[in-house]
Amino acid sequence: MKRRAHHSAVHFRKTATASLALCAALALTACSSSDGKDEASDESPTVTQSPTASASADPEETAVLAAYTQSWEAQTKAYAKASSAGTDLRKTTTLRALGLIEQDLETMRKAGQVTIGKPMIRPQDPKVTDGEIPKATLTDCVDTTNWTLIDKATKKKVPLPSTRLVKYVSTAKFEKWGTKWMVTELTAQPQTC
């Protein structure tokens, strides 16, 4: 069964947050351990892209990879404070996808939860198709081992279902709006990578 969380980390956070605060059934992915960082630290969380991620010589494919990484970085920052304010989410994510992220962030705020650490992504060879609106897709292995959901007040790790996938396959979809690639959707697969 596929779970959709149009864009990003959205799926990761939506799953983790919903499984804790509202729906224990949404436990496809989530954090598994704290990296020991204080949530209130000045260090800005950013996504780590694995050195094994493929580098593309095609300028459009390179642009898609850059957009994907920027989107993850913006989401990581938003989930670290349970708010999209002051992040670049609107620059990397379509309104439909952003709406789902905002729902996740609201759920986190109500539960008094934020994240610490960061995910590791390994996007693979984007496939770009021409058209009136150029589109692209890529597959990724998202590793949330060091992206942890914590209680904002106590700084304690929030227990998550043991059945969740800490590493999962995700497929991202993009559209090119003008000169910019925007993430329109992420589909997390219920399989490890």
Score class of each variant (00 low, 15 high):
M1G: 14
M1N: 09
R4W: 06
R4K: 07
A5V: 05
A5C: 08
V10F: 04
V10I: 07
H11K: 12
F12S: 01
K14T: 06
K14D: 14
A16F: 08
T17G: 11
T17F: 09
T17D: 08
S19P: 01
A21F: 07
A21G: 05
A21S: 13
A24E: 14
A24Q: 10
A25Q: 14
A27K: 09
A27F: 03
S32I: 05
S33K: 13
D35R: 03
K37D: 15
D38V: 09
E39W: 15
A40V: 09
A40I: 08
S44A: 09
V47L: 10
T48F: 05
Q49E: 14
S50P: 02
S50M: 04
S54F: 05
S56V: 07
S56H: 02
A57F: 06
D58E: 14
P59F: 09
P59T: 06
P59S: 10
E61N: 06
T62E: 10
T62Q: 12
A63L: 09
V64Y: 12
T69H: 12
Q70L: 13
W72I: 10
W72Q: 15
A74S: 15
T76R: 02
T76G: 03
K77Q: 13
A78W: 01
K81C: 14
K81S: 15
A82C: 09
A82L: 06
S83L: 10
S83Y: 01
S84F: 07
G86Y: 13
G86L: 11
K91E: 15
K91N: 15
T92E: 07
T94Y: 06
T94M: 07
L95K: 05
L95I: 09
R96C: 05
R96P: 09
G99S: 14
E102V: 05
Q103W: 01
T107S: 08
M108G: 00
M108Q: 06
R109K: 15
A111G: 11
V114H: 01
I116F: 04
K118V: 11
K118T: 11
I121F: 02
R122M: 13
Q124F: 07
D125G: 13
D125A: 12
K127Y: 03
E132V: 10
I133F: 03
I133S: 11
P134R: 01
K135G: 02
T137H: 04
L138E: 00
D140C: 01
D140L: 00
V142F: 01
T145K: 06
N146R: 07
L149V: 08
D151R: 00
D151G: 02
D151E: 13
A153Q: 14
A153Y: 04
L160K: 00
L160V: 10
S162Y: 13
T163V: 08
R164K: 12
V166M: 03
K167L: 03
V169Q: 09
A172N: 03
K173N: 15
E175P: 02
E175N: 09
K176F: 03
K176V: 10
W177I: 12
G178Y: 10
T179M: 12
K180G: 08
M182Q: 11
T184G: 04
E185C: 02
T187Q: 06
Q189P: 00
Q189T: 14
C193I: 03
